[in-house]
Amino acid sequence: MDADARFAEFVAERGDALLRYGYMLAGNPHDAADLVQEALLKLRGAWPRLRRKENPESYARTTMARLHIATWRLRRRELLAWELPELEHHDRLPGGDERRMWQALAGLPRKQRAVLVLRYYEQLDDAEIAAVLGISRGTVRSQAARALDKLRAAVPAEPMTRGNAR
């Protein structure tokens, strides 16, 4: 199978998962789509250089996280259009804490959001997060702590309902 065919197979198998991950990072479908596209293009460029033991998916995920916290948006040149859900579709998230949380996430600096996505969505530990983002473990911890503080302030716990619910 040639590189294009193997790449196509990879995109078909893992594309949606990457797009979900992009959506967590970016918080909206448009930027998520851009992120995935840019990361897949980089992956396609690197495909011949990827050694057998290197996992294209982790390459793509690392690229997406780094692109997201860099100023990737300004650098994009070609974008593919595709049908996307409504812009404000996080409004369809259930009400209450989760919706407030999603909105509060949108207010975080990109690096902080990326750290949270890697920790709580990708379930990586701090050493892995540090490797993905190319930052120190100390920075991972401080960024996560700062982000959680902000979220705590934005989504205050409600002891009554919380107590009942959990």
């Binding site: 995109v11 594309g15 949606d16 797009l19 979900r20 992009g22 959506y23 967590m24 479908p29 998520a32 789509a33 995935v36 595709w82 996307l84 859900p85 579709h89 996080h90 369809r92 998230l93 259930p94 804490d97 989760e98 949380m101 999603w102 996430l105 949270l116 996505v117 709580y120 969505y121 979220l151």
Partner: peptide, 15 residues
Amino acid sequence: LRATFGRAEDHAPRL
């Protein structure tokens, strides 16, 4: 946060 990410998965766009 975990619950929010989990729920948001359902709303992510499709390729």
